[in-house]
């Protein structure tokens, strides 16, 4: 309990570290914070061109929203995914990246991965806000689902943080981990229905055996993406089992990451 209260007492440090990243990132750029929007927009354009125009991937029509726009459908899954990878990789390298600080000053180390989630989350919140506006403009009704979406954004944050903290400690022992994770995350993205709909996998499962879908759906990010799509693109309550699986993964992953990080925290100055 004292650990948590110390963490809470130093919450200003969390805020300052977060703002250091937010402010420092786009210093001396002409467009400043706009870059954080240009980046996903560019990705959206490329994916839409390749997968909608060339590959002819069709999104499922939003039920009940009636939306049928690939770019928007893509972004409701892609933005959470991009946030997830940025938190995981950022949190993973945050400890090694601040080695100098850790060796010289005492402060609750957990603020390092936390502040990564803070600064990446700040950008993500802006992206999601813009997406919500775009969805509304094109005829959806995502606004009333924003509170529920916020809840799941929080869940995803803690899920990503848990994994990131776990990898951060692993990375101190084995520096290979960060290179491995980059590759793993790339493969993971294609194993998640972000640029193609889940129905394509369901079709394959129907012809080749149900086990394909069962294995495929073990991926927690599949559940998160589905939940965000149902909330923002379809505008309905997310599937109950999906929601519960998301929450369960979050609790397990965050607890695990938290405990492992807490246990290794005191030895970090020596190990780095």
């Amino acid at each position: 309990m004292t650990y948590l209260s110390e963490l809470f007492a130093s919450r200003e440090l969390f805020y300052n570290l977060t703002m250091r990243d937010v402010k420092g990132k786009y210093r001396r750029t002409v467009l400043g914070q706009l870059w954080s929007l240009i980046n996903p927009l560019a990705t959206m354009l490329v994916y839409t061109l390749v997968f909608s125009f060339i590959f002819r991937a069709r999104p499922s029509v939003g039920d009940p929203s009636g939306l049928d726009i690939y770019a928007l459908w893509l972004m409701t899954g892609l933005l959470p995914w991009m946030f997830f990878t940025r938190v995981v990789t950022g949190a993973m390298t945050s400890v090694i990246g601040s080695a100098g600080l850790i060796k010289k000053v005492y402060f609750p180390r957990m603020h390092l991965p936390f502040s990564v989630a803070g600064s990446v989350g700040y950008t993500w919140a802006i992206e999601m806000a813009v997406l919500t506006i775009a969805l509304t403009v094109f005829g959806g009704m995502p606004l009333i689902w924003v509170p529920v979406a916020l809840f799941f954004m929080l869940m995803l944050t803690f899920f990503a943080l848990g994994l990131g903290m776990l990898l951060a400690i692993g990375n101190v022992y084995f520096r290979d981990l960060q290179h491995f994770t980059t590759i793993a995350l790339q493969m993971w993205m294609y194993l998640t229905p972000i640029i193609y709909p889940l129905s394509l996998v369901e079709n394959q499962a129907a012809t080749h055996g149900q086990w394909i879908l069962d294995v495929y759906r073990l991926n927690p990010m599949e559940r998160f993406v589905s939940v965000f799509r149902e909330l923002l693109y379809d505008n309905r309550w997310p599937d109950l089992s999906d929601s519960l699986v998301c929450i369960a993964w979050t609790v397990v992953m965050f607890t695990l990451g938290f405990l492992v990080f807490k246990r290794s925290e005191k030895r970090l100055a020596e190990l780095l």
Binding site: S10, E12, L13, Y15, N16, L17, R20, K23, G24, R27, R28, S98, G100, L101, K104, V105, F107
Partner: peptide, 23 residues
Amino acid sequence: SGFHPELSGRENVYLNGSILGMS
């Protein structure tokens, strides 16, 4: 340690202060 090179001296004073445990 913990100074961010792109931030101003003023911002770094606040940042560094909080790293050292000041509110």
